[in-house]
Nucleic acid binder design. Sequence first.
DNA 1: TTGAAAGCGCTAACAA
DNA 2: TTGTTAGCGCTTTCAA
Lengths: 343, 343
Amino acid sequence: MGRRRPDTPTLEEVAAHAGVGRGTVSRVVNNAAGVKDSTRQAVQRAIAELGYVPNLAARSLAGRGADAVALVMTEPDWRLFAEPFFSEIVRSLGDALADTGMQLLLTLVRSDAERRRFLEYARGGRVDGVLLMSVHAGDPLPDMLAEARLPTVLLGRRSGDEHVSYVDADNTGGARNAVSHLLGTGRRTIATITGPLDMYVAQCRLRGYREALAQAGLDAERSLIAEGDFTEESGRRAMARLIERHPDIDAVLAASDTTAAGALKALRGAGRRVPQDVAVIGFDDFPLAERTEPRLTTVRQPLAEIGRAMVRLLLEEMEEAAESSIAWRHVVLRTELVLRESA
Amino acid sequence: MGRRRPDTPTLEEVAAHAGVGRGTVSRVVNNAAGVKDSTRQAVQRAIAELGYVPNLAARSLAGRGADAVALVMTEPDWRLFAEPFFSEIVRSLGDALADTGMQLLLTLVRSDAERRRFLEYARGGRVDGVLLMSVHAGDPLPDMLAEARLPTVLLGRRSGDEHVSYVDADNTGGARNAVSHLLGTGRRTIATITGPLDMYVAQCRLRGYREALAQAGLDAERSLIAEGDFTEESGRRAMARLIERHPDIDAVLAASDTTAAGALKALRGAGRRVPQDVAVIGFDDFPLAERTEPRLTTVRQPLAEIGRAMVRLLLEEMEEAAESSIAWRHVVLRTELVLRESA
DNA sequence: TTGAAAGCGCTAACAA
DNA sequence: TTGTTAGCGCTTTCAA
């Protein structure tokens, strides 16, 4: 037998108080049409007087869905949580969800235990859909969610033939454009600091780098490529290594703004002038990146669009889920090279 | 009439499949005692074969609570979300909640609309308790939650006589110790860059600064105090102002590590040597703060303890809520001055 | 040790 | 336009 929360009036009590039936109160609460104005007002008065709040569990159980979506961060490397990219994406998704009336719930999945817990939570019907970010190549969570027939949209892909719905930026194209630009300004010894190479996004950016060089008839020397992990510290270390191996470096493509900031530090520490001496281009373009001096030339990802696209895809899937047909959708958004005056 | 999610077997179907009653399956699912071993195994087999997952809405409705707690960020200034302090607190709370079996749900409350939405969500019974961080002085949310008799714990206080449960660090003491230390090493012209003064935490740190000076018979000159907002950029600007007004500054207490990092930049930009020339002390002490050079001397907050304490308080309140008596609890944790060799 | 049955509070179909 | 009613899937007595 269920135990009631104390002090919480039910629909039934409101109905009694207003002298109407439960159905009518339900209609008023849900703003359904077909209620006489006077009745509606009487019900609303009763609701106010009793301090009625609908029980969401009962509502879900009766078939109305959870009215919430989860945004899952599966990021074992915890430092990345503090990156501006994360907060900007969260903001963007929050904005995109604002007028759907759904709650956005961020959850962290750092271990298998947490993965199981979240899966139970999601499959238990507490959310209507799941947004996933920072997905690494081998992560099984998207498939588990898909198997449970939960509407799911990834930010980025796990690989070139991702099947689960995703929204991604054109990382390859962005990197290619950036390096082409560098070549166009006469730079020749161009290095790159990659992201973690178990992430497709990092592989794409590296591929773009390679393609631009190939297009110019140049080879991407192994020793000009240093792997980082998107953090500033990794950028600094990678840059230090690169300078040592190639004192003649005159340009660098970094896998993120943060990495680029680290690279700048290492360059300055080594007495190199930036950007006259060495041009540095980062990926992403945040207002927050003001901390880098000089301001970076960057490949900008359309973050607001990414958020909107993810939410759009998710809503479409949710609608389909009601009829239990599913179709994956894939969106790749253009990036844009943003040149700073000093570079 | 409620509409079922497709493909989701119910308790009843599991019971039929295993040839037992619903009650027995429920007992097995919830690991309750009093089930014969052979029966338990038969049920578990049925569960596995059918891929049964309990419907959490039904479970909540039947009185078992939501098994989730919300962590709410009410931070209008979005940039702060990217601060290490946030991510570290989230990590700490995640760890503290790990073995309670509850889901941690982060939610953002940036506007009144979002405040209302969240309140409906929480009062609707989707969470068993609420943790609040970054609460500004006038924020009504804690009172609204308290009124709804939802177990609630704040990180920090809104004012000196906060009544809602909270866990806070000894900010006044920490700042006092820091400034006393500076005085002890012979510094005399000591400035401070505060946090946003509509937050009690910032007021406390300023008070500690004042107290230490007073103790030494010195006056806290108005012109030695510059207000910031915990961001790096504000630290840089504040420091620039301070140097202009007081070229003889030889020490600074900053309201956060991030602010201190900004101050360092301004100082270096002005050609001052740090820390020999000017000693800078920040609040908070993150591994992430490696980006500051030289490493800062800091007042360390016991983040892991804060998370544990918040969860402990919340669990206590949740237990009480079941018997509908309430008592607020207040915990203030010690801070620690961490000296770096170079300072 | 187990099964049966009474709710938990709501939505939506159906009658009136 | 409104009231009545049959579930939604689970937990938890109460009997057996």
